[in-house]
Design a protein around this nucleic acid. Structure first.
Lengths: 318, 318
DNA sequence: CTGAAAGCGCTTACAG
DNA sequence: CTGAAAGCGCTTACAG
């Protein structure tokens, strides 16, 4: 039994007789043999490894995206190398480290990445496609990017809230340096401008529960009494809801609230948050397809958000 | 410049003159050269890769643990290969797949693993140490395990609640097949027995928010009015809190609530959940140390939980 | 269809 | 300290 025969037995579609393959596989089973993927990678120059780069996993959207992404990768016979990226260091460094493992692609979950990351400039040197998930980076056309259509989502939020009768609409933002924040706010403001309105307030800081909570309190302390609040994402909107409860303002009777993301937490009985859901499955599928056939410079690939009607917006679904 | 020289320049502590090393590193910098970690792995037979096997990341405890674990691994110059494990498949299969990458160890986050997993029997065949994080599997002495001392934690919960004046104490469990559930309940019941009490109720199903919520509603519908509830973990306890709020029962005046885990979510203003925190950093450190020097059969390594006093237990901290 | 041989990019005794 | 050579465990033309 030659080495080649064994190799071919484990290679789908290789030229080998069924009989030989059977014998090899049988022996392998008996001996507990498994081909060494590391050696195969070296030989074929294809590691089958994709780097997943994550920052903090504070926002539940990311763990959800991460585990679904890992599963999708596995379904395609690839492996996920998990790398953490903390605020202090450069993403570039992390990427370089990953490159040593002959990764075929890298996907960055930009939990802590704003629009001016120090050195994502020549990120894809070495010919490895790098994809930003859930963010676009203006001016970085060498980066692939898959995101929700946040601009359209912002418009939709405005339309829904306005349609529910609200006229004093506030936006409570996230990290103002991110495209997610900017695009959602822009869409929101633009749509409102179309009906002669503008947001009564748009404080912004971070995509955190605590910020949504605090900003809502501050808003009311300053005398604002919005009749609708668009939270920059679900976790912010959940903070908003808790603050409103504390303030004694009834949702949705007095105030409507809408979020963005579609995290499972928003569906809990305590919140029933109406939101614009990012189509995660479609985005992940698209991301993997895009990495297989990368065409940099074509701009971010946008997916429309889907309205999830629950209980925090007054009236009936449109 | 020989191949050997280059190799040694990148090997800390290798016999090489500072001058040569400098020249190599400089050239590498200029050329953008990085040693191929895959080739190195093949040569040294040490991949530096540790498999992290996760199920669903529903419970926020796991993403937190996962990202901290990945960071700790990186700090030690190792890499995390992320593998998902879904309920349907055998952990053994996932482990086998990981083994192809010459992993040095595997850490299983048993989000969906109960005490009778189909085939974790000869899991460490191949000499790769496998460590269960946050669970012990009675009868599986070949598995390493690092967990919180759930039994002691259960006792502590009983003591705290009893100390706050409660006499009708309920336990709302998680997945009853897990060691985490069983140990916490056992400790809880044992301590209560010591003062002549037993839990007024101990429904169990899953470590989910929805279950904590539903079980609390059911309990009250059945006419029980506990004056204290021990949630099997924080996410269950948070469901309990939301249900109590719906029922109009005031916390902590009428009912005290305590959780287990110490997830960040419990600290939110809306909950202020008093809990027993798992010392995650210490557990992770211990896990990595244990994997470096594995001594199977020595039983699970237990870490004491720490009381985090917030606002859901009546009275003052002990 | 099958096997012998070269090569993937490193590391590491070994000899100098 | 340095270099030539063998070897890690695979894959894949190439010849048969």
């Amino acid at each position: 039994m030659s080495q080649s025969a064994v190799s071919r037995a484990f290679t789908p579609g290789a030229r080998i007789s069924p009989e030989t393959r059977r014998r090899v596989l049988e022996a392998a089973e008996r001996l507990g043999y498994r081909p060494n993927a590391i050696a195969r990678s070296l030989s074929t120059r294809r590691s089958g490894i994709v780097a997943l780069i994550v920052g903090d996993l504070h926002n539940p959207f990311y763990p959800q995206a991460l585990s679904q992404m890992a599963q999708a990768l596995e379904a395609g016979g690839r492996r996920a190398l998990l790398l953490t990226h903390d605020a202090g260091r450069d993403v570039q460094e992390t990427l370089d480290a990953a490159r040593a493992y002959q990764i075929e692609a890298a996907i960055v979950f930009p939990t802590r990445l704003n629009s001016t990351p120090p050195s994502l400039g020549d990120v894809s040197r070495g010919g490895i496609p790098v994809l930003l998930f859930n963010r676009r980076l203006p001016g970085h056309d060498d980066l692939l990017s898959v995101a929700c259509d946040n601009h359209a989502g912002g418009r939709l939020a405005a339309q829904i809230l306005y349609g529910s009768g609200a006229r004093r609409l506030a936006f409570i933002g996230g990290d103002p340096e991110t495209s997610t924040h900017q695009d959602r706010l822009r869409g929101f403001s633009e749509w409102l401008a179309g009906v002669g309105l503008s947001p009564v307030a748009a404080p912004a800081r971070a995509f955190h529960y605590d910020w949504g909570f605090q900003a809502t309190l501050d808003l009311h302390a300053a005398g604002e009494r919005p009749d609708a609040i668009f939270g920059a994402n679900d976790i912010v909107a959940i903070g908003v809801l808790d603050a409103l409860r504390l303030l004694g303002r009834r949702v949705p009777e007095e105030v409507s609230v809408i979020g963005f993301d579609g995290i499972q937490e928003g569906g809990r009985v305590a919140y029933r948050l109406t939101t614009i859901r990012q189509p995660l499955e479609a985005m992940i599928e698209d991301a993997l397809r895009t990495l297989d056939d990368p065409r940099p410079g074509s701009g971010p690939r946008l997916h429309p958000g889907e309205l999830v009607w629950r209980g925090t917006v007054r009236g009936n679904p449109p």
